[in-house]
Simulated assay, not measured.
Amino acid sequence: MTPGHGDAVEMVADRHSPAPRARRRGGHARLPGTAAGREREPAPWQLVYFGPPPGARRPVIVLLQCEQVEGEQMTAISRGTALTAVPFAVATIAYVGTFLTHYDRLPERIATHFSFDGSPDGFMGRASALWFGGALLVGLGLLFTVLTAATGKRAGTRLNAAIGAGTAAALGYPLVVTVLVNSDIQSAAEAQMPVRHVAALLFGGLLTGALAWWLSGAEPRPAAAPEAPSLALADGEAAAWSRTEVSRVLLLTAAAVTIAGVSTAAFGAWRSGLPLLVVGLVCLAFTGVRVTVDRRGLTIASTLLPRPRLALPLGSIAGAGSVQVNAMGEFGGWGYRIRPNRRGVLLRSGEALSVRTTGGREYVVTVDDSTTAAGLLNGLADRHARERD
């Protein structure tokens, strides 16, 4: 079919599929499967074929590439990423700029750590301090920015941006002040860090985080998981379900951090090794969990330590279902995670049991065979409600 003068033929084709054939009606073309008078939804590729203009021998073909991008989602991602990256960029520029402008006024070794009374108890070479502080800000900035970008438009973007921005302020402020208190002194031992700066960095971190939270705007609530079919249980009938999940990644992480903490405490300063030991024990608590559904409700307990332990009685359960979760994208990591109106015990990404309470909060735990657990939990909760009525 060759269009005549003034006729227009519009062909819309997906870039991954062959171009459809246009049909001609009344001097215009219509795509197969498209009713007359109705416009077909734009596809990623749009081919517009016009008839020859006056005096031209060949038709004019215009090819337009239209990328379908959800504007709101891109806006949410870019806003959260910017609110995380910009504070770290500002902190890095402020620290490096202050250090370079005061470089000749600093002693060869500067005080980098201070005790509670403000006197120095840790020192570092001038050049080493510059590189260490700059690398720390850049590294944490990249980490928080990637975490926020990976979250996308899911629930948790707002919290990630607030924590990242607050961390940038709380870390950048003392680094800049450290340079200033070391300026124009003969020895690093003369440096003093007034206690008021501790209050200032805490207030600055909280204020910056709150501002990032407000600027991020409201985020969409996660869609409720569809309830699993309730398992019918007769009065007095006993039923229980239990399964154990182990995370090798968390186990190796906990072992490495604990060993590092023990080594630091034994051969170095015990104060430096204590935080590593605490982090190692926290990781160890979530390397393995046992999930149990029985007449008491839902119980999630560590397989290695008596605590933490999470218990949801039957009377507080509104419904349960099976979902697919992205640990990093939806919760920002693994272990016990807290999000607005959501709590998660995550050892991996993938299949998980989702439980909604009567108070509107959702609890998610990654476990296999979650559909069976959800069905039994719904059946037990339904029977409990009948008995209570």
Rank of each mutant, 00 (worst) to 15 (best):
V289R: 02
V62K: 05
V291L: 09
T357W: 10
R388E: 15
V282T: 12
G156R: 01
R342E: 15
F331Y: 15
S128R: 10
G164Y: 00
V181N: 01
A232P: 04
A13H: 12
A225D: 06
R356L: 08
G204M: 14
R126N: 07
I77Y: 08
N378L: 02
V323G: 02
A29R: 06
P120L: 12
D7F: 04
D235Q: 09
I317M: 07
A256E: 09
A225Q: 02
A29M: 13
R342V: 08
T287D: 03
L298W: 00
P42Y: 12
T299K: 03
T151H: 02
V367A: 07
L136R: 02
F267E: 08
G6F: 09
A155I: 09
T244R: 15
A111W: 00
R23M: 07
R105K: 10
T92N: 02
E67G: 06
G205M: 03
F286I: 07
G55N: 13
G297L: 10
G141L: 04
R348N: 13
R24F: 10
V262N: 04
D14P: 04
A22V: 08
A29L: 14
E351R: 04
L64S: 13
F88S: 00
M193D: 01
G156Q: 03
R290D: 10
T75S: 15
T34V: 15
N378D: 07
A127W: 07
P308C: 12
T75N: 15
L305K: 03
A13R: 06
D104P: 00
G360E: 09
W213F: 13
Q324P: 07
G118T: 06
G27D: 13
V177K: 02
V345A: 06
M74N: 08
T151N: 07
A149K: 02
L180Y: 09
L304K: 04
G321D: 08
A8N: 08
S316I: 03
A265I: 09
V86R: 02
S17E: 13
A352K: 00
G268Y: 07
A240T: 11
A240H: 11
S230V: 09
L353Q: 03
L207F: 09
V48Y: 05
Y173I: 04
A155P: 02
S354E: 14
S349P: 07
G344E: 06
D294K: 05
I163P: 00
G139W: 14
T145W: 11
L180R: 12
R196I: 08
P174E: 10
D382N: 09
A22R: 03
A269W: 13
E330H: 06
D369N: 14
D117K: 08
Y95I: 01
A228R: 01
R361F: 03
Q324L: 12
Y95S: 02
R388H: 15
